[in-house]
Simulated scan of single mutants.
Amino acid sequence: MGKDEEARVDRARGRVFGEVAELYEASRPGYADAPAARVLEYAEPGERPALEVGAGTGKATVAFAEAGTSPVCVEPDPRMAEVLRRNTAPFPRVRVEAAGFEEWRRDGRRFGLLYAATSWHWLDPARRRDLVREALDPGGALALFWNPHGVRAPRLHGAPAEVDARHGITGTPHGVLASSYGRAAGGGRLGRGAGLARGRAPRRRRVHRPARGPFPRGPALRHRPLPGLPGLPLPLPGPGPDHRERVLADTAGVLDAHGGGIAMEHFSDLLLARTAR
Rank of each mutant, 00 (worst) to 15 (best):
G231Y: 10
D250Q: 04
G108W: 06
R15W: 13
P78R: 13
L221S: 03
A99E: 08
G240Y: 02
V72R: 05
P49A: 12
R224E: 06
L196W: 12
I262H: 03
G213D: 01
G158E: 14
G231N: 15
F17I: 09
R244C: 11
A60P: 09
V176W: 12
G182R: 03
A98F: 12
A50Q: 07
M264W: 08
Y24V: 01
V72H: 04
E265T: 09
L136S: 07
A165W: 00
R166P: 00
R93N: 13
E52W: 15
T61V: 03
G188I: 03
P148L: 15
E75H: 04
Y42C: 01
E19F: 12
R209K: 08
P35H: 05
R222T: 07
F64R: 11
R109C: 00
L270M: 01
S70I: 07
P230C: 10
R15C: 09
L236A: 05
A276W: 00
D242T: 07
R110H: 11
G195M: 07
T275M: 03
P71R: 07
H174G: 08
Y181N: 04
T118L: 00
G260K: 05
G14L: 14
A7F: 13
G158H: 11
P239E: 05
L232H: 09
A126F: 03
A273T: 08
L232T: 14
G261K: 04
R244W: 02
